[in-house]
Write a protein that binds this DNA or RNA. Structure first.
Lengths: 284, 284
DNA sequence: GTTCCGCATGAATCGATAG
DNA sequence: ACTATCGATTCATGCGGAA
């Protein structure tokens, strides 16, 4: 029997993070409000002041993260006046000055991105997953995401391939589509820093910012059972719910009471799990 | 009969670019030596001085590009001492100060055949394709790169137009409404800003920096026949060869005599093409 | 029970119109 | 002139009901 603890805090994470001890969190996974987005719900942060807004929060996150821990930041800059805004890359530079190591940048390829057509631009189908660390020696459990090819192939082929194969075949001679057979013949899939996940566009009470598969992958990769996962911009609590299911302790901070209450209602502060052969993450 | 002109220059592009007139190039597509990469061939540029090294060259490129033209820069920062280097994002900020517009960042997802494994990092499967422009109004031929629609289109195409009509009627209020013709007989969709191309695994007598499909896609997108494509870091001449095949004029600058000679040998300064029904890019 | 179809809707972006 | 709002455009996905 494993007991997993959930802590939910209501308020601005810049303040609420101060209630969390130094070096106590194994993974921070979050998707903050993007600049000028969600103006109605979060008030909206102007691109020009985004770095300044985020930096003190990042400072607290740096404090609460264990030296072996990892911070994964899901973010994407929007277009302003025909150009990509630079606040995200400015944030990277600023966080480095703050003491963070910018270890890696993963790409989340959104298969079902928002539609639309413009004369000067295609649809934006990717977001950044910036990996930051306190120390060069951090915990990483690669084998947890190096799943057998059987499962991975099904996912890849179901999610990706029918469309991709068609598109590939139309590009003969350009190097497209040559290597699909290679993916099929492997017994182990080696993950890369590119993730393919569809957004979940059909949620009930709320719109999830990201699919569950996203936090799940990083929780597998950077934590083990019993570790602690923090989301300082909890929103609808996707990260916490997934962490919970995977037998990790979770901390969530949310500034909006309606989201805070909703998550508290959905997830209990203590969850009990039964250890069973074969069944992972099964609730007791 | 169409005549296409190729110009090859031997030398440092910072100097050689000065031989090219103002506002004369429609597309610059290039993959410069990455910092600390290709140490043997280019001498290697240290990450700390990369921006400083690149900037005067970018200044000349800004001069030779037409106002309607586009600069596509294929680049990826390497890992140094466990961290991603920041010279690429610093370069973006510096080029903006120089007058460039950072219009878009495309992702080249490299579907590679050779996996790798490190204790703290997965294989890097993507590179940046940074799009810069001089002006907000630039030429873009989107219909040239359309891709087949997803699977659902086969069975759901009819329904989609129904759905769309209904959705449209809910917004009726003024004018003609939408153009239904856009949806009838639609079998292609516009692509996104994520490109899937396999790296070329077959080794030739040189190591190509990128597969032919990469310049081909951007040449289709940003130029028409008879336009001029420039690669200031020509290397083995992939960009020029593709441009040539697609009936665009090309300019290539290369600092290493052996590459320069090889390309001159492969590609003649003037190519003649026969215009035929149905056959695109067929050599006379 | 499968499969198929109807349908709603997304961390989007632009251009026109209104204040 | 400059900003805020709004309508138009578009494609992939999952759910739920129908065949």
């Amino acid at each position: 029997m494993i007991e997993t603890r959930n802590v939910f805090l209501l308020g601005d994470c810049e303040e609420e993070l101060k209630n969390i001890p130094d070096n106590s969190v194994d993974l921070i996974f979050t998707s903050p409000p993007y600049a000028d987005q969600r103006v109605k719900t979060y008030g909206g942060i102007h691109p020009d002041s985004y770095v300044e807004w985020f930096l003190p929060k990042a400072e607290e996150m740096l404090r609460v993260l264990k030296p072996t821990g990892t911070f994964v930041l899901n973010i994407k800059e929007k277009v302003a006046d025909g150009e990509r805004s630079t606040y995200v890359i400015e944030l990277i530079l600023a966080m480095k000055k703050q003491g963070w190591l910018w270890t890696e940048e993963f790409i989340w390829h959104k298969r079902n991105c928002y539609p639309g057509k413009w004369p000067n631009r295609f649809r934006d189908a990717w977001e950044r997953l910036l990996q930051f660390n306190k120390d060069k020696k951090f915990s990483m459990y690669q084998e947890e995401v190096m799943v057998p090819m059987g499962d991975w192939a099904k996912t890849r082929l179901n999610n990706l391939s029918e469309t991709d194969k068609i598109r590939d075949e139309s590009k003969v001679g350009s190097g497209f589509g040559k290597n699909i057979a290679n993916w099929l013949s492997r017994d182990k899939a080696f993950p890369t820093n590119v993730l393919h996940l569809a957004t979940e566009c059909n949620n009930k009470n709320h719109s999830a910012a990201f699919p569950e598969g996203l936090p799940e992958w990083f929780i597998k990769l950077f934590t083990k059972e019993g570790d602690t996962v923090l989301d300082p911009f909890m929103g609808s609590g996707t990260t916490n719910m997934v962490a919970n299911r995977m037998r990790r302790n979770s901390i969530g901070i949310e500034i909006l009471p309606e989201y805070y209450e909703m998550v508290k209602y959905k997830l209990s502060p203590v969850e009990l799990y039964l250890c069973e052969e074969g069944g992972k993450y099964e609730k007791a």
